[in-house]
Nucleic acid binder design. Structure first.
Length: 415
RNA sequence: CGGAGCGUAGCCUAGCGGUUUAAGGCGCGUGCUUUGGGAGCACGAGAUCGCCGGUUCAAAUCCGGCCGCUCCGACCA
């Protein structure tokens, strides 16, 4: 991609109103644009990151046997009345009417829709277990949106729902999901702890929140210095030491990144989603549901991974893998920059090629801001050595790699 | 929804009753000079000062209403 043609344009100045680090950097780098309170457009750079995160999540969902679906945002009132949630959601539903004055909600979650699907096709214990997920827009009538992408009123969520014949099966799958979640956070270079939580308006018997340590987090969590134990401070009051390993506990601000619920038969009972068990008895389905906010995850990565110059994207979710800067408009430099870009692309590497007629300083500043993992520089200086200068966003040192070997070398390093 | 604050050019800000033409920076256009850490000079385009009403000889500036946005509180992925 030529940067001169990129729709996104970095900003030098930002409103003094912007406070959260992720909000600031995502706006400065022009990853996102605010349309209204809590409502954001994703621009090319931002959308590439968003899609990388989606694909990472999608991969992990596939690994645990979940099947991808896509459910409607427009959901009829009657469905929500079956579970008595039409007027009882917190935050409330966005509601609207069609031309026949029929009422709908814009889905803030999809338990009703998925349970309806399940009751239409799951009939026997032989059909179980099942797990389906989607990555789709959610609408939540939040009282107050905050911190850019950290809490919005429209956002993409990966929501997974599982159906089981037995508690054991549900528990077994729940643990699998939990492991998949930790793998997802690992791939984003985030440390997560699972803490027991209130089930809120989703309900069910038990739930856990997946918390990521970050100064701009709104939740206070007690985290063990030694093991992976975490607990919500409101939930447990004051603990003095870790109940798992006895080590010291620390208070940390965290962002709630994901939430998993043992729904049990809450929705299936209310909506008549049953199956016939081995003994020929009709039983309600046992359900679990598991959500990750994609935009919030993107913001969290930035909260945790940035410096005073900009974002530092982990390779897995970076908008491009290589940012190639061409310095000066010397013909030979330009020719080499194009050639190197092409050879990288042919090796399957995603390259943002800064071909703009801008000063070196501005290009360096933009590269730091956008935060692509590898920065390559082609200039008269580098050509004197018949080389390309290579620097990683996380490192300070640069090195020279021969122009002929650059594609192969970068390809190897990225793997 | 309670509390606080803010709306001036595409963006960031200054001005907060009276230099009459609303100021500066960024960005944008044209030309020249530059090119390893947000370059320089010159010229130029770009604003019904959020909207409506009121006070006044005079309103971006004071008052009221509305709209929008931000932050703190409660809630969430």
């Amino acid at each position: 991609m030529k940067q001169s043609k990129l729709f996104s344009k970095t900003k030098k100045e930002l409103s003094e109103d912007v406070e959260a680090a992720s909000h600031k950097w995502l706006l400065k780098g022009d990853f996102i644009d605010q349309l209204s309170s809590g409502i954001y457009s994703f621009l090319p750079l931002g959308w590439r990151v968003h899609q990388k995160i989606e694909n990472l999540i999608r991969e992990e969902m596939n690994k645990i046997g979940a099947q991808e679906v896509f459910l409607p945002s427009l959901q009829p009132k009657q469905l929500w009345e079956e579970t008595d949630r039409w007027g009882n959601m917190a935050p409330p539903l966005f509601k609207l009417e069609d031309q026949h004055e029929r009422e709908y909600a814009l889905g803030s979650t999809h338990e009703e829709v998925i349970t309806d699907l399940a009751r239409k096709r799951i009939e026997s214990y032989r059909d179980l277990p099942q797990a389906v997920f989607q990555i789709q827009n959610k609408f939540r009538n939040e009282v107050r949106a905050t911190g850019g992408l950290l809490r919005t009123r429209e956002f993409m969520m990966k929501d997974l729902y599982s159906f089981h014949a037995t508690e054991k099966s549900l528990d077994n799958y729940y643990q699998k999901v939990k492991k998949a979640y930790f793998r997802i956070f690992d791939s984003c270079n985030l440390n997560a702890v699972a803490v027991e939580a209130e089930s809120g308006s989703i309900g069910g018997s038990k739930s856990e929140e997946f918390m990521i340590e970050s100064p701009s987090g709104e939740d206070e969590v007690l985290i063990c210095k030694n093991c992976n134990f975490g607990a919500n401070t409101e939930k447990v009051g004051e603990l003095n030491e870790c109940p798992e390993c006895g080590a010291e506990l620390e208070h940390k601000n965290c962002i709630e990144e994901a939430h998993a619920f043992y729904l049990g038969d809450k929705y299936s009972s209310e909506m008549g989603a049953t199956f016939t068990d081995k003994n020929g008895e009709e039983e309600p389905l046992l359900m679990g549901c598991y959500g990750i906010g994609v935009g919030r995850l993107m913001a969290t990565i930035v909260e945790v991974s940035h410096d005073d110059k900009g974002i530092i994207w982990p390779m897995r979710v970076a908008p491009f893998q290589v940012h190639l800067l061409q310095l000066g408009d010397d013909k030979k430099v330009e020719k080499t920059a194009k050639k190197v870009t092409k050879s990288l692309q042919e090796a399957g590497i995603e390259v943002l090629y800064d071909d703009r007629d801008k000063s070196a300083g501005e290009k360096f500043a933009d590269a730091d801001l956008i935060g692509i993992p590898y920065r390559l520089v082609v200039s008269e200086k580098s050509l004197e050595e018949d080389s390309v200068e290579v620097k990683m966003r996380v490192e300070d040192e640069t090195e020279l790699i021969s122009t002929g070997k650059i594609a192969e070398e970068i390809e190897n390093r990225i793997k």
